[in-house]
Design a binder for these strands. Structure first.
Length: 304
DNA sequence: AGAAACGGTATT
DNA sequence: AATACCGTTTCT
């Protein structure tokens, strides 16, 4: 649809210094625990709600395909938004601008075909970061007992790397390039692996791995942002860079997004009755934003 | 098929 | 010269 930016007359100074931008890194330095909305809820209100919907859909739809029959009434129609209409926007003809005065809680409940087995999905801080690889695979798998010097590198992270991201530095143990180091970056949300700064940044921008062209010879006139692949559980394996999604492993069966503050637009995810743990909040917020952003362009980052 | 590691060119 | 980046190979 809106192929070209509609409202962007000259939003590109481009004459000064378009340095490295890592909006996510700046926007989410550290999500405040309560009233610290970094993003504009207004933007999320309308169209983005659908994203959340879709997201939840994905969550439930792909949550456990094993329990999903080939035609079972999955998430498709489970979702029911009480009021898809954006509160912030004024409804001409009505007179109840009781916007988010009293917490318009939209509860997207995600019920699988089964009931709930995971009422307490996230006991605590999961362990998104496995310090060391599960095993040795690939080239130097069973070669020599090479115990690669895998440096956690939790520190000394590059400045461009958004907070929460993990970096791994592996040293090559053989070959003419032995001794060289390869760095890998991992998205805390999806767990995907990236091999370079460029990949990461590209991912942060578009939400996709920028490397996705030359696939089909000539058939993509607008191969822009490919839809998410809602058929993977990244956290379990951590694919390389490609799609972006939630942590499909540790998710609640029911999520409730509450607009805690309409003014600033502070949405807070609730699991059941409990507020999302801080540890998870960032991830969610990141994903949430990422998705919303993907659709609204940069609408939500406008500072008023 | 996917992940890990190496090879090698491009870039700084 | 150093290293960032990514194609390709190798192994699970």
């Amino acid at each position: 649809m809106s192929a070209s930016e509609t409202s962007k007359p000259d939003a590109k100074p481009s004459s000064n210094d378009p340095p490295e931008f890592n909006f996510i890194g700046q926007v989410i330095p550290d999500l405040p625990s309560v009233p610290g909305p970094e993003f504009d809820a207004h933007a999320l209100a309308a169209a983005d709600i659908k994203e959340v919907e879709a997201l939840i859909d994905a969550l439930t739809g792909e949550a456990d395909k094993e329990a999903a029959p080939a035609e079972g009434p999955i998430a498709a129609e489970k979702m029911e938004l009480p009021s898809p209409s954006p509160p912030s926007s004024s409804q001409p003809g009505e007179s109840t601008p009781q916007i988010a005065k009293t917490e318009p809680e939209l509860d997207f409940e995600a019920n699988n075909s089964e009931d709930v087995h995971m009422q307490t999905p996230a006991p605590e801080v999961v362990e998104p970061l496995s310090q060391f690889p599960p095993r040795k695979r690939g080239r130097g798998a069973a070669k020599t007992g090479l115990e690669l010097a895998i440096v956690p590198a939790s520190q000394d992270l590059p400045d461009w790397l958004p907070p929460g991201w993990r970096m791994e530095s592996r040293v090559r143990s053989s070959g003419v390039t032995a001794g060289m180091r390869d760095r890998y970056f991992y998205d805390p949300v999806s767990g995907r692996q990236f091999r370079s700064k460029r990949e990461v940044l590209c991912f942060l921008e578009t939400g996709m791995s920028g490397r996705q062209r030359a696939k089909s010879k000539k058939k993509d006139t607008n191969a822009d942002v490919t839809p998410l692949k809602t058929s993977e559980h990244p956290s379990s394996g951590g694919k390389r860079a490609n799609g972006s999604t939630f942590d499909f492993l540790n998710r609640p069966a029911k999520v409730k997004w509450v607009l805690t503050d309409s003014a600033t637009g502070s949405w807070t995810p609730f699991i059941g009755d409990e507020k999302l743990p801080e540890s998870r909040k960032q991830e969610w917020a990141t994903a949430f934003k990422s998705i919303a952003l993907r659709n609204s362009g940069s609408t939500m980052f406008q500072s008023r």
